[in-house]
Amino acid sequence: MQKLATTKRAGRQSVIMDKGTALLYPATVAGPKESLGPLSTFFDRHCKDNIMNEKSFEKAECHMMEEACHLSLSKAGLTPEEVDYFIAGDLLNQIISASYCSRRLSIPYYGIYGACSTLTESMALGSKMIEGGFARHILVATSSHNCSAERQYRYPTEYGHQNPGYSQWTVTGAGALLLGAAGDGPRVESITTGKVVDAEIKDPFALGTAMAPAAADTIYNHFVDLERDPSYYNLIVTGDLGAMGKKLNEDILARNGFNIAPLYTDCGVMIYYPHQKVNAGGSGCACSALVFLGYFYKKMLDRELRRVLLVATGALHSPTSVMQGESIPAVAHAVSLEI
């Protein structure tokens, strides 16, 4: 086998960027419930209702993603023709929000599915393409919608049932971000690609718990591959583990010798107030997109945070696999950001 002619690889799962890709001009569109949450002022656009004058929730989700993409492009002063690739994904079957959004953008498109890990998956892939010299500007986007996700994964929206205390609320919103070789913004310094981890949890309401072992696995391997300690970072932030998953992630890493608790938070825990009745917190692609692109990005620009490890986590089940008694596999991708 030909030896890999690069020194960019570190350990089994990680790569280190030479130049580092800059994260530029994030744009966030938040749903009505998210607009009432504690981070509301950090989002660019706020939707008054769930349907946004569209004919269906799926169309509304697509609309939000388009709005986020156009907002990011207009902040950058770029036209779609100046963007080399569009990498996007969402939660719906056949990732329709992303694909239907891209049909009017006319940018060469890669559709990806990583469930709620889409944000870091697209950032990781885009960064590698820019680092490799295959693109100058890449637009990445992701979205989720409470009503379209609920109906696909669980029950119709108006069906009356009692959610267990560990359940999470799918975030309505969309986020878009421009990746570029140069520019003023946090840079992707290294990437750890996650393996699929299955903790054999079968309850589709316990997604945070199902995803936490994957997050712990990726964070553990990130530290091992790059010979780092949690204290290297100002902040470690996971995508949408919620209160339960956050605790499980901390506990697993503590058992394996890494105490991340003092500098660790989770987007799902931050996006809603406790009185918004979301049980264990938020979930969905837009959860990490809104909280990271809206809130933490600004904290990094203000140099309040200089080194952040962003780990978005995705549960890779489908309603069919759950009905057939399969457990819920999960994946998490980590990107290390520096400014």
């Binding site: 267990p164 903790a199 072992p213 696995d217 339960m244 506990d251 890493l253 394996n256």
Partner: peptide, 16 residues
Amino acid sequence: FLVDRRWVSEWTGFKH
């Protein structure tokens, strides 16, 4: 896997 699956299911039963 960083932890035993049985440990996760025990954790779930205890902490959920």
